[in-house]
């Protein structure tokens, strides 16, 4: 029956909105994009100094979330993945241990986002899986649970 397809929330005056559940990013969308570009440059210079932990921390701090910042989100994802791709797998555990707990959670968000991108499985799938395995060893299953619950999607 078609009544199962009726959007009953449309008839509820007191319906809870997605926006009520998430604190919006205080920054302006253009500012967020400018920040993301600046971070990309900072990451490049950090990588040139061979400072992977520093580069990851720069990229993951104040990661863009919420609506209207898709360009900044994609840019940050590319920045993060470029760091992941350029790290030798033997160095990964040491890099992860030096990250803050917040940044570990944010990195896990980007790993899942990368796996969800269409076509990315062929390109960087194995890299993402290695990082995922090592990150779960360091941050535990709690880190994955937080990625699932957090509505501030990157």
């Amino acid at each position: 029956m078609s009544f199962r397809k009726i959007d009953i929330d449309a008839y509820d005056e007191d319906v809870i909105q997605e926006t009520e559940l998430v604190e919006p990013d205080p920054r302006d969308p253009t500012q967020v994009l400018a920040d993301a570009k600046q971070k990309q440059a900072d990451v490049r210079s950090a990588l040139a100094r061979n400072d992977v932990t520093g580069a990851l921390s720069i990229a993951l701090d104040q990661a863009p979330y919420g609506p209207n910042v898709d360009e900044a989100k994609n840019l940050t994802l590319q920045t993060v993945v470029s760091i992941l791709n350029s790290t030798r797998s033997a160095d990964i555990p040491a890099v992860l241990k030096d990250l803050s707990v917040e940044n570990q959670d944010t990195l896990m968000k980007y790993l899942y986002k990368g796996m969800a991108m269409p076509g990315w499985g062929d390109v960087s799938g194995s890299v993402l899986l290695i990082w995922h395995e090592k990150l779960t060893e360091v941050a535990g299953t709690g880190c994955i649970v937080r990625v699932m619950t957090d509505r501030r999607t990157v």
């Binding site: 707990v101 709690g142 649970v145 937080r146 619950t149």
Partner: peptide
């Protein structure tokens, strides 16, 4: 349910949050 425990001291307010390793 985000695998965390928070302890609140209201006068500050100071909130201590511990993110867990497990479920």
């Amino acid at each position: 349910h985000d695998s965390s425990i928070s302890i609140v001291y209201p006068s500050g307010p100071t909130v201590y949050t511990i993110r867990l390793n497990s479920l």
